[in-house]
Amino acid sequence: MEPSNVVKNFSCGDADLDDFILHRASVFQKHLHSVSYACVDVSSPGKVLAYCSLANDKVAITDFKDKTEFNHFRKKRGVPNEKRLKSYPAVKLCRLGVASDAKGQRLGTTLLNIIKSMFVIENKTGCRFLTVDAYLDAVSFYEKNGFRFMNAEDNDPHTRLMYYDLMDIVT
């Protein structure tokens, strides 16, 4: 997986994901809003099998309905009292797409595992959580990969805010 500047051909079956990697990812990268990584087929130069885009994020008290719910979250995640902050560093998985003709090869799970290891093994900035606004039809995929719902009262009709605690790998 390498940073990618331009992808010329990609289709995962979702118009928004396709449009982002084909037309907007390079602009986001140029303006330092996110970085996109492409998984390419070594036997077919230029063929993108999957991609993801990452940006800085945080898990904050405002992600929860109230301070009590946030404190319950911190306690459940084992955050020591002396480390109780109003927000915790995270990386947002902005986009993740697998080419239609590459589905079923576990590339999405492989990309998630690579991202997780990037922030545990070579964590250069301090990062406790991965977050994602998962499309409703992708929620089960993220759950299978260890993501949990940020809060039970998230009623967005298109996405659900989910997180992965990187301490789950460390401990």
Rank of each mutant, 00 (worst) to 15 (best):
10 F>Y: 03
154 D>P: 00
101 D>G: 11
16 D>M: 14
80 P>F: 03
9 N>P: 00
68 T>D: 15
27 V>F: 11
109 T>P: 06
46 G>M: 05
47 K>Q: 13
80 P>K: 08
164 Y>M: 02
9 N>S: 13
86 K>W: 07
124 K>C: 15
13 G>K: 06
50 A>C: 06
90 A>D: 14
133 D>P: 07
167 M>F: 09
83 K>G: 09
79 V>S: 03
69 E>T: 14
169 I>T: 05
20 F>A: 00
46 G>D: 01
46 G>E: 03
135 Y>D: 13
29 Q>K: 15
125 T>D: 12
20 F>G: 12
140 S>M: 10
134 A>G: 01
99 A>W: 01
80 P>H: 02
2 E>P: 01
58 K>Q: 12
138 A>I: 03
45 P>W: 03
62 T>E: 15
136 L>V: 03
118 M>R: 10
50 A>L: 04
27 V>W: 05
31 H>Q: 12
92 K>Q: 15
111 L>V: 13
14 D>W: 03
114 I>G: 11
41 D>C: 13
103 K>T: 12
18 D>K: 00
146 G>L: 04
147 F>R: 01
165 D>A: 02
88 Y>R: 07
124 K>W: 15
134 A>Y: 02
169 I>S: 02
159 T>G: 02
150 M>C: 10
30 K>G: 09
90 A>N: 14
30 K>D: 08
48 V>D: 00
144 K>N: 13
28 F>P: 04
170 V>C: 03
136 L>F: 00
14 D>C: 09
67 K>T: 14
131 T>A: 06
82 E>F: 12
84 R>Y: 04
57 D>Q: 03
61 I>P: 06
45 P>A: 06
118 M>F: 11
63 D>A: 07
103 K>R: 14
120 V>E: 04
9 N>M: 06
165 D>I: 07
146 G>H: 07
45 P>G: 08
133 D>S: 09
128 R>A: 05
115 I>G: 03
23 H>D: 06
77 R>W: 09
36 S>Y: 00
171 T>G: 13
60 A>G: 15
73 F>H: 12
141 F>C: 02
104 G>W: 13
7 V>E: 00
111 L>Q: 08
95 R>S: 07
100 S>V: 13
50 A>T: 10
157 P>M: 00
168 D>G: 02
127 C>R: 13
152 A>F: 08
59 V>D: 09
71 N>L: 09
13 G>C: 04
112 L>S: 00
143 E>L: 09
19 D>Y: 14
127 C>T: 15
14 D>F: 04
53 S>T: 14
142 Y>S: 09
99 A>M: 01
103 K>H: 12
168 D>C: 04
108 G>I: 01
60 A>F: 08
75 K>R: 14
32 L>F: 14
13 G>T: 02
55 A>H: 01
141 F>V: 03
67 K>R: 14
153 E>L: 08
107 L>P: 13
102 A>Q: 00
134 A>T: 06
46 G>I: 06
60 A>M: 10
92 K>V: 15
31 H>I: 09
118 M>Q: 07
163 Y>I: 10
10 F>A: 01
74 R>M: 10
75 K>H: 07
160 R>P: 05
